[in-house]
Design a protein around this nucleic acid. Structure first.
Lengths: 234, 234
DNA sequence: CGCTCTTTTGATCGGAGTCAAAGTCGGTGG
DNA sequence: CCACCGACTTTGACTCCGATCAAAAGAGCG
């Protein structure tokens, strides 16, 4: 587990950033990344914390980050998993309010910090970039709205199948059909919005139905099709 | 119920629009509203429909509109109530995809139709307006995310108290403490994400606890404080 | 004035949460 | 190298919130 990871060069960060946001010119890129403050985070490290002040957002160069809210009883609700090329924390920056989510790494990750002032200046001066951000936020809003309906109307089984389907399409399977993101049962439960034990029982069901196999935290998806069948229910 | 409502003049629409979006100049306003196509909708009328193509968005000059999704079993999940000064439908316009919500009037309403092309042009050429829209969407996204956590973790009673609290702050009470929006029990249930009968039972509880009184669809809120106490639970 | 839609109350059932306990895995240090 | 420890996973038993079904009472409208 003690891989020696090199931090990316200026050029590598910019290359990755351009893949997500292609409307930013060289001078602006330079402003965003001139002081190259990328940082390596190891699994489980806090990036920012709900209720705290947040003075900038983070661009994910590599790794996986969970964005979540902590409810009344201290239970996490995972809003999304963010990965390479994603921007996190900008919502609170833009609204200039305390962070209303927390973010924590799920996998070793390299993040690049972007101060509020630079992001906001870019938004106010570059309409094309601004438009890309609008589309991005609108997309997330659409997803959130759909998830409200799902969580209000679907059974836990349907939602679990849906989350698995989503993880498959976001993170993919390897040649051996193993899902390329490793998360605990609890994290899966916090994503689905249910108890850990319920997730475990349903995964067992899926196993007896030959839809998946499990080995520790590795999930082998034998039949993605049926999962998305179960998920939709309409 | 057969009030004769006059459609607003060009100046009146613009006046109302400026209160919500103050970064739009006169020429742009003229482009938005030059053909004055406002329309009166009566209660229960469809504005746009989930899954259909949508070629523009709507500015609400007056009245109340519910924005909702229809789930698998045909059950509505209300995402929000929009009112005077709000813009609806722009999310799907911006993402150039089929509407992923439906909208219907809850109260007689006057809406102003804004074609996609004009909205998008405005977004791409006016960075200040664009920035206002970003903030608006970010705000909605924050609210949606919070609601995901609530619906996943809170009891129906807490959520009902929360929705009532929200309705009070959005629509207000009159001198007689009567909530200034009139909705059916079913709509309330579809907002909370529960069954109509559950809402009715909980409202009865609130009545015996002297927190509210009901007369038909009129809700008199005797003790808003306790409602928000019940709602938060943390 | 009757018809339909909405509201209310009652009875029942089941999904999913909670609590408890046993089993498993991986990492650490002796 | 192996034994131990803590964290995670699994299974079982029990409980209860809230959904569903059913039916009566009330309200709004043509």
């Amino acid at each position: 587990m003690k891989k020696n990871v090199d931090l990316p060069s200026y050029e590598e960060v910019i290359e990755t950033f351009k893949k997500s946001f292609n409307q930013v010119n060289d001078e602006e890129l330079n402003q965003l990344f001139f002081n190259n403050n990328s940082k390596l985070y190891t699994r489980g490290e806090d990036i920012y914390h709900q209720g705290r002040r947040i003075n900038g957002c983070y661009f994910i160069y590599s790794g996986v980050v969970k964005v979540f809210q902590t409810g009344g009883e201290g239970k996490e609700q995972i809003i999304r998993f963010a990965r390479k090329g994603d921007l996190i924390g900008f919502r609170s920056v833009i609204n200039q309010e305390l962070a209303c989510t927390s973010a924590k790494t799920v996998d070793n990750a390299i993040l690049y910090y972007i101060p509020s002032s630079i992001l906001i200046k870019l938004l106010k001066t570059n309409p094309e970039f601004s438009y890309q951000i609008i589309r991005l936020v609108c997309k997330e809003l659409g997803e959130s709205n759909c998830y409200i309906t799902d969580i209000a109307q679907k059974t836990v089984k349907e939602r679990l199948a849906e989350i698995l389907t989503m993880l498959i399409s976001d993170f993919g399977l390897d040649d051996d059909k193993v899902l390329q993101i490793t998360i605990t049962r609890e994290e899966l439960a916090n994503m689905v919005g249910t108890a850990t034990e319920s997730v475990i029982r349903l995964l067992s069901e899926f196993k007896t139905e030959k839809i998946i196999e499990t080995k520790g935290r590795k999930l082998r998806i034998l039949n993605p099709r049926i999962l998305s069948e179960i998920a939709k229910s309409y």
